[in-house]
């Protein structure tokens, strides 16, 4: 048993490393070419990311199956005794406790983070970066913001993992699929 789990761990780590490598390759291409090659680069990056996804799937599934994600990222329905005590303490001091074992302070922190990210975005606009860099950073920041909103404001983090796995991949897959439109638009531009 022990032996087997070691093997699985090794296998998963290798796959994760490979996935990381693929992401690095994609990042490298973006950094070097900055999409000067048009659709070719876009394709290269997309393929590299797909490969990364492929490599990362078994470890992720493994993580889900063994409840690793659940432990790491999901606060349990019933908080352990010590946390409950902490919450009671907080409540006594006038900070609102939440039925999920999360205080409103957390939400305020999230709100501040969102404001901070927005501020950063606006600042970038003020500095006026190059367009492609700007786009990358802005979309990155926006995805983080969206994740924060979904996870905390929309309580997804406190729901069951199965709900997250139902909602998020469907949206992500469909939206990513629509990216296939872009080779066309680049081509149209080159034809103009």
């Amino acid at each position: 048993m022990e032996h087997q789990s070691k093997e699985t761990k090794f296998f998963n780590m290798t796959l994760l490393l490979l996935a990381g490598g693929a992401v690095l390759v994609a990042a490298w291409d973006v950094a070097v070419s900055r999409f000067r090659g048009g659709t070719d680069d876009l394709f290269f990056v997309l393929v590299a990311l797909l490969v990364a996804l492929l490599f990362a799937t078994p470890p992720i599934l493994f993580g889900i199956r063994t409840g690793w994600f659940h432990e790491k990222f999901v606060i349990d329905d019933e908080p352990p005794a010590t946390e409950a005590a902490a919450e009671a303490h907080a409540e006594a001091h006038g900070v609102e406790g939440e039925s999920h074992g999360v205080s409103n302070r957390l939400f305020i922190l999230v709100w501040i983070a969102l404001l901070g990210l927005t501020g950063l975005e606006v600042l970038l606009g003020y500095v006026q970066l190059r367009n492609d860099l700007m786009l990358t950073i802005l979309m990155g920041a926006s995805i983080i913001k969206a994740a924060l909103i979904m996870a905390y404001f929309m309580h997804l983090r406190f729901e069951r993992m199965s709900l997250v796995l139902t909602v998020v991949p469907a949206i992500v897959v469909c939206l990513c699929l629509m990216l296939i439109l872009f080779p066309d638009s680049f081509r149209l531009f080159h034809l103009r």
Binding site: E121, L124, G125, N131, S142, A146, I149, F153, M154, H155
Partner: peptide, 28 residues
Amino acid sequence: EISGLYWHFVDLVWMFVFPLIYLLSIKP
């Protein structure tokens, strides 16, 4: 809570509209 879900979603959409439409069209 459900009405809240809807409201946050509208907020979330703006998190993409704002950078894409405004910040990428700042006058040089």
